[in-house]
Design a protein around this nucleic acid. Structure first.
Length: 589
RNA sequence: CGGGGCGUAGCCUAGUGGCUAUGGCGCCUGCUUUGGGAGCAGGAUAUCGAAGGUUCGAGUCCUUUCGCCCCGACCA
């Protein structure tokens, strides 16, 4: 590609709103342009980078037996009604009617459509295992797109779906993806860790997320530096200590101006561990069969030294959605915000108690009376409810496996794998006939990678003060050929030779000053830069720099540039491939 | 959906009721220059996001609305 013909231009200044380095450079270097909130154009450079990522994904999916298909973005709502997700997913899924009034949706994932396909294609155990995948546009009307390509509404996703006769088969395909994903991220050069995850709206049980650790990430990942425990905070557990004692008589005391736990322990001169904290939420419960909604007040109780993890609470309550309760809603149920507890909870209120509270005795809790608390409350004796782990894991807490202090970091989810089981096959009547003639639901898995998010993560990881420095496996071109000579014939010829040898070249043939060309080359950051200038040309040489190490200058002989460049490309690719983690799932979450 | 911020040319930006809306980059023409965002001369490009209002006069004040960004709720 000749730079004089390149569609995009570089920008000297970052457009407003580009608040991370990776995003700023993707804009400035001309990889992407924004059209609207969470909606982006891919320009030639960005599109080429994405294409390279997709090629890697295709190769690795094909390696584990995947067959590429393409499912439609626009779906009739019927299949989504069959699984109930038409009702249970909020406005994140866009709906519309076609010209004759049929309900339609823009697909945000494809479990429904692929299950519909499978129920007609798969009728016998002999047809499985099967694996299909697609690389396709998804639309999710996210309420809060942000950070460039990190969190968008329209995006490209690789999603694959596995079909098996039994759990063992699913396990095998899950393992294959587990390993393939490490290979995919490894080949792109993105460092990732795998964490145990919540299965969220997808249903199913076993699930992992692939996280690129970055301060601009939105997920909090809990890791144990001592053993290998890692999990998304949404599901991370930790070892709790309990406050066991002989149960004492409950006693109501006057506690003025003690709406918070801090004020309470200050006033009573006790430890936070001796208190029980109640969090009031309103849960929405949606009937999957008809979409009828029901709201319920949920009281989550954790010990005062802990925080409620809302995701855990939502799962424990089996609610579709959760939001903080308004003071009026709390009052309507006869409870007092700031001085509330599960004691005296009315019928219809869902009480979920963390085991830290259930296993501790004589905790101070709200009396549901203005400026009053109870001393010595005990779960089971003074109030009832469901016991679950709903506490949020924090840095410093004890690892659930080895008790070492946990640490917390921020991460971007670039991939996920789910064992769906029979959630969709049962709901959509996707059954096969087994060897013993019985009808059984197909066992499914689903596996995703956000392609654009992967590029954005790579841009964050591979940049410096001058611009991008993407790995050679994903950079839009391999070589940036910079011409600093007036007589262009020699360079034109070199460009032709490199291209003819199958090398991707961006040829800066513009009539710009050397400074402009170098600055643009730094910004776009192609991995290999070949500079042709009078300085070295008179000795029959060209200068070569690797973008990731601009301090070092190599010199290639003009007659052997092509072969030397090919060797350098091979070396850079090998460097990345040497870092690929060949990892297998050990069966843990 | 709640809270905050911002919309002036392709990008960045000045402007605090008063003359023909500022400057830089970029763009066009000519000359010059070619190893780190060069120089000179000339030029084009803005219905100041939109609508309504206040005023003798509005980019500036008020109302409404649209868009974008940030924080929160949310999120595979």
């Amino acid at each position: 590609m000749r730079m004089s013909k390149l569609f995009s231009r570089t920008l000297r200044e970052a457009p407003n709103g580009a608040d991370s380095k990776g995003y700023e450079y993707l804009l400035r270097a001309g990889f992407i342009r924004q059209l609207g909130a969470g909606v982006f154009n891919l320009l030639p450079l960005g599109f080429r980078a994405v294409t390279k990522i997709e090629t890697i994904i295709r190769e690795e999916m094909d390696r584990i037996g995947g067959q590429e298909i393409l499912m439609p973005l626009v779906n009739p709502a019927d299949v989504w009604k069959e699984t109930g997700r038409y009702y249970s997913i909020d406005r994140e899924m866009s709906r519309f009617k076609d010209r004759v009034g049929r309900d339609m949706v823009l697909a945000m994932t494809h479990e429904e459509v692929v299950t519909d396909l499978a129920r007609t294609e798969i009728d016998s155990y002999k047809r499985m295992p099967l694996l299909v995948y697609q690389i396709q546009t998804k639309w999710r009307d996210d309420p809060r797109p942000r950070a460039g390509l990190i969190r968008v509404r329209e995006f490209t996703m690789k999603d694959s779906y596995s079909f098996d006769v039994d759990e063992a088969g699913l396990d095998e395909q899950y393992r294959a993806h587990y390993t393939a994903y490490f290979r995919i991220f490894g080949r792109t050069g993105l460092p990732v860790i795998v964490v145990g995850a919540d299965s969220g709206m997808m249903g199913g049980k076993v699930s992992h997320e692939y996280m690129y650790l970055s301060p601009i990430g939105e997920d909090t990942i809990i890791t144990c530096p001592a053993c290998h425990y890692t999990a998304n905070r949404q599901v991370a557990s930790f070892k709790k200590s309990y406050h066991k004692a002989e149960m004492k008589e409950m006693e109501k005391v006057f506690t003025p101006e003690t709406k918070t736990i801090d004020e309470l322990v200050d006033y009573l001169k006790i430890d936070k561990k001796q208190t029980a904290k109640s969090v009031f939420m309103v849960g929405t419960f949606i009937d999957d069969t008809n979409g009828e909604e029901q709201s319920k007040l949920i009281v989550g109780v954790v010990r005062g030294d802990l925080e409620v993890e809302e995701n855990k609470l939502q799962n424990a309550a089996r609610a579709n959605a959760l939001r903080p309760a308004h003071p009026e809603e709390i009052a309507a149920m006869g409870m007092v915000a700031g001085y509330g507890s599960a004691i005296g909870a009315k019928e219809g209120i869902l009480v979920i108690v963390d085991d830290s509270v259930a296993e501790s005795n004589n905790l101070v809790a709200g009396a549901n009376e203005w400026e009053h608390h109870y001393l010595n409350t005990n779960f089971g004796r003074d109030y009832q409810g469901t016991v679950a782990d709903i506490a949020s894991a924090q840095a410093g807490f004890a690892c659930p496996v080895c008790s070492a202090p946990l640490s917390a970091s921020k991460g971007i989810e670039v991939g996920n794998i789910f064992q769906l089981g029979t959630r969709y096959s049962e709901a959509m009547d996707c059954y096969y006939q087994d060897i013993d003639s019985t009808r059984k639901p197909v066992i499914m898995g689903s596996y995703g990678i956000g392609v654009g998010r992967l590029l954005a993560s790579l841009a964050e990881e591979y940049c410096d003060d001058l611009g991008l420095a993407l790995p050679i496996t994903v950079a839009p071109m391999q070589v940036h050929l910079v011409s600093l000579v007036k007589e262009s014939e020699t360079v034109d010829q070199l460009y032709e030779e490199l291209t003819a040898a199958g090398i991707d070249v961006l040829y800066d043939d513009r009539k710009e000053s050397a400074g402009v060309k170098f600055a643009d080359a730094d910004l776009i950051g192609l991995p290999i830069r070949i500079t042709v200038g009078n300085r070295s040309l008179k000795e029959g040489k060209v200068e070569v720099k690797v973008r990731s190490n601009l301090d070092e200058t190599l010199s290639f002989d003009l007659s052997t540039v092509v072969s030397e460049t090919q060797a350098l490309i091979g070396r850079l690719v090998a460097e990345i491939e040497a870092r690929i983690e060949e990892r297998e799932w050990d069966g843990s979450l």
